[in-house]
Design a protein around this nucleic acid. Structure first.
Lengths: 248, 248
DNA sequence: TAGTGGTCTAGACCACGTG
DNA sequence: ACGTGGTCTAGACCACTAC
């Protein structure tokens, strides 16, 4: 044997996949917090007893999934939730003509409730598990455009209160991250069309019966664990949902 | 100098990016047709005078963009438009409960027209350029669900006729590919909500004023050149738009 | 058996960021 | 000057496919 290229294939999984798994596990365990640098590639190679090339291939995939960010000359960092990141990767509503803008959020209501059947299924909860139900109104350039209803499993958000939620000085995902150590890394969305009921119409400043875009989002953390449900109603009279993502 | 690692950096662009560009150009020029194998990585390395590793890195990106497909032991192939590929990568409507199904297409109308302002802008056409305007009704399990209006630049589809379009025995993107050598490699979509007008409602078998999901798609070929516009109206009473894509 | 892509290693040099 | 990631090369062996 010359190095040990191709050694130990009995494990079935490619080495770099195993390294990726170990890295993801350390991330999920909070060993490296968002915003801080991981050990250098050389160090990681020593730690896992693999060559730098193998570490790089593992990191390549985590970078492609936007879980890590590389900065030449500085290091490799855990992706954190800046306002910018939320805007670019999780907020898909844009003016029909112009470019992206930061929305302003107004808290409408905050309540405890029991999970309904849909929440139970999508959040892997026990029937009747306690959840938080939060409603927000989002404005773009002062105009109300989006009505959000957020469902959170109470178990994962201990001592969350309306006061905490209202007085946060950051985005919602930053709150999850900083206060609960929950890092939302991707989301899955399903869209449909609906008609505005009276109360939604009033909040959005439109006529009841107007067409609305309904977005059902599941937000996921490491290992694709769901941590938040969100149903958005969007007035698309002057805005659109942008299914960007480079790749089809 | 030992090999020529890092040689010739005057060109500013990384070597593998240059190789990627050359590969994409050959694809756009039709040197390799969809479905056929490219030369082996070793051959490509000789052709471009780079190491196999550099070729692999270029191909890696084209594979990530779903432009090429690798098959271990067989070779690297140009992605072609099977019915399956269209279904998985370009058709995003799924039953609210179940999994993906192949839609059946019914041609409603086929006409020549002059490009409107929107088409001119999105297809980079000259004002008043001739286009084809095609309308289709798509059914899922026999139920009409989607109403499509397709706009094609006539220049790129010479001698296209209703007969050709109607008598194709494949998907629409396969027709573009086989008859016109146009390979749609990705699409960009913008979604909004609308109300069904009388004629749409009739075709979809719903009441006028029902909410519909409107999808405006631009289909692109190599080098991000737009080749087709498509506006879809979707009855989302029992179906949803799935914004999949793995990565957020 | 031969050829292809897939994995893994090792090491050189470049470009960038910080002190 | 030093450490980091970025690029590029070279070569070994594995896994799969076709003949």
């Amino acid at each position: 044997m010359s190095g040990h290229p191709g050694a130990d294939t009995g494990g079935a999984l490619p080495l770099y996949q195993e390294v990726k798994r170990l890295l993801t596990q350390s991330l999920a365990d909070g060993e490296w917090q968002p915003g801080v640098a991981l050990p250098s590639e050389a160090k990681l190679g020593e730690r896992y007893r693999v060559s730098i090339g193998t570490v790089r291939k593992a990191i390549d995939e985590l970078v492609a999934e936007r879980i890590l960010v590389r900065h030449q000359g500085r290091g490799t960092f855990v992706a954190g939730h800046s306002a910018r990141r939320t805007l670019f990767h999780f907020f898909h509503i844009v003016p029909a003509d112009g470019g992206k803008e930061q929305p302003e959020t107004e808290l409408l209501s905050f309540a405890r409730a029991k999970a309904d059947a849909d929440s139970v299924a999508r959040l892997n909860l026990a029937p009747g598990a306690p959840v938080f139900r939060i409603r927000n109104l989002l404005r773009l350039r002062g105009t109300p455009v989006v009505l959000d209803e957020i469902t959170l499993p109470a178990e994962r958000f201990p001592r969350l209160s309306e006061k905490v939620f209202r007085e946060r000085d950051s985005t919602i995902y930053q709150l999850y991250q900083e206060r609960y150590g929950i890092n939302v890394v991707r989301s899955a969305e399903r869209l449909s069309a609906a008609l505005a009921d009276r109360s939604s119409a009033k909040l959005l400043g439109i006529a009841a019966g107007s067409p609305l875009l309904r977005i059902k989002r599941t937000a996921l953390t490491y290992h694709n664990v769901p941590v938040e449900l969100r149903t958005s109603l969007v007035n698309t009279a002057a805005h659109e949902y942008f299914s960007d993502l480079g790749k089809n």
